[in-house]
């Protein structure tokens, strides 16, 4: 009987399979060993360098230069390790400690690496660079972040806009405000949070944005205006209670709860009587107005639908009867 496959071929296949298996096992062993070696090296670096970084973080002005000199004298691997530590810590600290960490980052040469990565062809590297630019704020960071806020990839734009929240320069505020636009590709909550982080530096631009032709910008600005208590925004918010877009109207109403304006009561009653979601939102805003103003408006809600009356805190009609 003739075998289906020649014995020589079977042997060759067996040996090939054995070699492949051995090769895979060998690769696995090498990978594991190198990972263990890396972890050992990281632990060893951590043991030697972490204390130095922590000391620099809380150092007095006259102590810092000597600590930075010690760090400059370290090798490349040690610099990279310090860079990672600094980057992580900057997530949780502010003020003087953050300034110290930035000085450490500069001393170990982290800034040039981050600046280079901002123009890397990989979107992931550009996004990482955007985050690092926000935290480290090296010289030139703002200009690069403005570029990244217009990146072709929406994920990169999103990270860049979030990072711009740390900058109070008017040009940074403007870029963040523009990211509120409907078609920006940046989630509006990210841009709004960045504006809140910019705080009073964003006030004037937010007030202007309440008149922007883009509904997304008007909506975001309307929401932020109340949270930031933007001076002079009240009149614009009253106008936006009757905006053509419902989302803008709702945002304006929520802000008017925090920034009450008496002239808003008329438009709010009109919206409340229209009923539905906006009616309920208007009723809540009316109920949040100072008690000396809202009496007449609440009486006007007598003829509103039950959900609106409930939102205004009014008793049910049956209960009144």
């Amino acid at each position: 009987m003739n075998p289906l496959v020649a014995p020589e071929l079977l042997w060759a296949l067996l040996i090939a399979a054995l070699l492949v298996t051995l090769g895979m096992l060998g690769t696995l062993v090498v990978q594991r060993s190198s990972r263990r070696a890396r972890e050992r090296r990281r632990r060893e670096l951590d043991g030697r360098l972490r204390r130095l970084v922590l000391e620099a973080t809380i150092a007095d002005d006259d102590e810092l230069p000597a600590l930075l000199d010690r760090m400059r004298a370290l090798d490349r691997g040690e610099h990279a390790h310090i860079g990672r530590t600094v980057f992580m810590m900057l997530q949780d600290v502010t003020g003087e400690a953050a300034d110290r960490l930035r000085a450490v980052a500069a001393a170990v040469g982290l800034a040039p690496l981050v600046l280079d990565a901002a123009r890397h062809r990989s979107a992931v590297r550009r996004a990482d660079a955007a985050e690092a630019l926000g935290r480290l704020a090296p010289e030139g960071a703002l200009e690069l972040l403005l570029e990244l806020a217009d990146d072709r990839e929406p994920e990169v734009r999103t990270v860049a806009v979030r990072a711009l929240g740390s900058f109070e320069d008017p040009i940074a505020v403007d870029a963040v405000t523009r990211a509120l636009a409907t078609e920006s590709g940046v989630p509006s909550t990210v841009a709004a949070t960045a504006l809140l982080q910019q705080g009073s530096a964003a006030s004037e631009r937010v007030r202007q944005a309440l008149r922007d032709p883009d509904a997304g910008i008007r909506r975001g600005a309307a929401r932020v205006a109340g949270l930031l208590q933007v001076p002079g925004a009240g009149e614009e918010l009253v106008r936006l209670v009757q905006d053509e877009h419902e989302s803008v109207r709702l945002a304006a109403m929520r802000s008017l709860e925090r920034l009450p304006v008496r002239d808003a009561l008329g438009p709010l009653v009109e919206q409340a009587l229209a009923g539905g979601t906006r009616g309920e939102a208007a009723a809540r805003t009316i109920a949040a107005m100072p008690s000396a103003w809202r009496g007449e408006a609440l009486r006007a809600l007598d003829r509103a639908e039950p959900g609106v009356r409930r939102a205004a805190g009014l008793p049910r009609r049956e209960a009144l009867a």
Binding site: T57, I58, L90, Q91, D92, V93, T94, G95, E96, A97, A98
Partner: peptide, 8 residues
């Protein structure tokens, strides 16, 4: 509130 200032 985090991020915080160690001095604060």
């Amino acid at each position: 509130t985090k991020p915080f200032s160690p001095r604060a």
